[in-house]
Structure formats: structure tokens, C-alpha cells
Computed example of a mutant assay.
Amino acid sequence: MAGALDGVRVLDFTSVMAGPFATRMLADLGAEVIKVESLEGDQVRARPPKRDGHSAYFGNLNAGKRSIACNLKSPEIIDLIKQLVATCDVLVENFRPGVMARFGLDFATLAAINPRLIYCSISGYGQTGPKALFPAYAPVIHAASGFDMVNLRYQDGADRPATSGIFIADVLGGTHAFGAIQAALYQRERTGQGQHIDLSMLEAMVGMLVFETQEAQFPGDARRPLYTPLKTNDGFIMVAPTSPRNFEQLSDAVGHPEWRDDPRFLTNADRNANWATLLALTEQWTLERSAAEAEAILSRHGVPCARYREIDELLDDPQLAARGAFAQVHDGAGAFRVPNPPFRMSGSQVEARDHVAQLGEDGAAVLAGLGVSAEAVAALRERGDLG
């Protein structure tokens, strides 16, 4: 089956996570993605988990891409990049604002070469505003966006924001960039013109806080119900009886149909006001069972719930296997699994492509496509401008 983005050519100047996440999704839909790396390579190539010198972390973010390693301070390399831009549909970069301009690769310059070019810039705070030039990684954006303090307010008894290890801002920013690029490609079909996409990870995070941005403007209501993990005799389970029907199903599942006549739980408003009590009573039931048993009983009654699982359990999860949620890819150290995009398309192949490029392995081939001879490529390597 063909990919929705077959024939789309992407020049990828991104590194670390947000940009590579976006461009891997483009590759998953069939785009040809040419990753432009420094001579030292994307720093994630050196990050664990590593096997025989190859990073599975890097492979996850960069499967399906080609690689050219070069010195962007070389005028000859910049000239070649500009020739390459003329053949591309999309360019994605996540340097700090101003860096691409210093290379002579800003949108205005490249749009003059290729007016159909869609140029996506991903940065912490966006390309404009008083903090545009501030350095930022995902944990910094989590703090700046209010996300960490919101979470702290939801953790009764905690006295500082949670330690960060999952880079939500990167994944969210990359996902928004992927979507914006699709919209720009569609608009180009109607107008014939490319455009600049300015993606702010800060704004992506703020946009995720749907309830909280409204609560900040209109405070004073009672605290909304929070979803608390319930203990079992061997772990934890999440139970979310949010609708009236869910509440009835819960009362049946735990053997307490009389809860339906309890004045504390008669209406949605009553249950919301006594939410913590309802969960505490439910926990008395879950504590007498394993997480798996509680999940099975509650699910059988239609109660939304899930036991808490470790990531390694998910690798062989029957639901994910049925959906084809993982693809197997290979790098120089062998095979490993990476998540596919979370959507399926009836008319398009959507999966990670089975290729993880070595640093610079496609440089000669990419330049040959521009008519650069083998001798000229060798000379660039001799001068240290091409990896």
C-alpha cells in the first residue's frame, strides 16, 4: 500500500526530540526525509539504551530517514543545501531562533529559491516575543507553561513539583508540527505557495491545559473531581466512574447497589461533592483483590478502569498487537521495536520504515542527485566539510 506522503521530500535540520518526532511521523507516511546532521551527529545518537554503540532511543526517533553529515559553516555546503532546498517540499528545523538565518538558510532566503517550500520552525517559545531567544528544553517548558504547578496542586501532600522524565512538550510540539505541515501541504495544493510555520512548544503545552486556563480566569468553584489511583493487594488500579451509568455499574460490580440510594451519591452533583468518599469506599473493595482481578470484574460490568502496568508489559500486550502498534526496525546492532503512529488509514501505509541510517551514510547519494561528482564529494570530505 502506498503512503499518503509518498513523493514528498523533507529536509530535516532537527535534533534531539521535538523535531525528530515530527519528521519521523512524516517518514512513517512515506515522505523521503533527509536528516541534516552536524559532523558529530545528533546528540541522541550517544544516548542510552545503546547496543554495540547504536542508540535505540535515536533509532526510535529517526527510523526511516536518510542522513547527511556536514559543516553548515562551510559556504560550499550552504550552496549545496540551497540546491537541495530547490528539490524539497518541506524543511523542518528546531534551532534557537536566528541560527538558521546566520547560516543563510532562513525562510525568506529559501522561499526565494523555492516558493513552494513549507518551512517549519519548532522552538521553545516561538520565533517572536520577549522570550523567543531563551534556551529551552521540554522540562523547562513544562515549568514555564504552568503544567508542573497544576500537577503539584493536584498532588495532595506534595511540597514541590514532580521530577520530570517524560518530555511531553517535545512530543506535543512535534505532533502539532506534523499536523501544521499537513495543513500547509493541503493549502499549497490550492494556492501553489509554501509558507512559514512557527511552532511554540510553550503554546502547545498551554493549549493542553484546557480546564486549567479557564479555571485561572474564573476561580472560586469547588475543586473538581480528581482521579486517584486505588490500591489493590498487589499494585494499583485507576477507576473512573464519571457518568451516571458508570456509577450504577460500579455499585453493581463491587456489590453495593445500595449506594444508588445514598444521599451522598444520588445525583452527579452529589457524587462530585463526595467524589473522594466514593473512591475511598471503592478502594476498600479493590484492596481485597489483585489489580488484574479487580480490572476483570469492573470491566465485565462496564466500569472504565485499568490496572497500572509497566512499559515492558505493553510490548506484548494483545490489544497493541492486534492494532499493529509496534514496528520492528533494524540498525547496526540488530532488531528492536518502535511505536507506530496511533492512527490507521484505510488507503495509506502508516508505519515506521525499517531503516536507521548511520551518521552521514547517505551524503554521497544525496549530493549525487544534485549532480555532484564522486571526486567533488571526496574533496568535501578531505576538507572536513562532509562526513
Rank of each mutant, 00 (worst) to 15 (best):
D6F: 04
D6R: 03
V10M: 08
D12E: 06
F13W: 11
A18S: 15
P20C: 12
A22V: 07
L29V: 10
L29I: 09
V36G: 09
G41T: 08
Q43A: 14
R45Y: 05
A46M: 13
R51K: 15
H54E: 13
H54S: 09
Y57H: 13
G59P: 07
A63C: 14
A69T: 04
S74N: 09
P75N: 01
E76T: 06
I77H: 00
I78F: 00
K82T: 01
Q83H: 07
A86H: 08
T87S: 10
C88Y: 00
D89H: 14
V90R: 09
F95W: 09
R102G: 03
G104K: 07
L105D: 06
T109V: 11
L110T: 12
I113M: 01
I113N: 02
R116C: 09
G126Y: 09
G129V: 14
P130R: 13
P139Y: 02
Q155I: 08
P161H: 07
S164A: 14
F167M: 11
G174C: 07
A183Y: 06
A183T: 10
Y186A: 15
Y186R: 14
Q195L: 07
H196E: 05
L199P: 00
E203A: 11
V206D: 03
E212K: 12
R224Q: 11
R224G: 04
P225Y: 10
L226P: 04
T228Q: 13
L230N: 12
L230C: 12
G235M: 04
F236E: 13
I237D: 01
M238K: 02
P241Y: 10
A253I: 03
P257T: 11
E258L: 10
W259Y: 12
W259H: 07
W259A: 14
R260G: 02
R260V: 07
P263V: 11
N268H: 03
A269Q: 14
D270C: 12
A273T: 06
T277M: 10
L278G: 05
E283A: 12
S290R: 10
E295Q: 15
A296T: 15
L298M: 10
V303Q: 01
P304Y: 03
P304V: 02
A306H: 08
R309T: 13
I311R: 05
I311D: 01
L314A: 05
L314F: 14
D317L: 12
A327N: 06
V329K: 05
G332L: 06
A335C: 00
S348F: 09
E351F: 04
E351M: 14
G360N: 07
D362E: 10
G363V: 12
V366K: 00
L367Y: 04
L370G: 03
V377R: 07
L380R: 06
D385I: 09
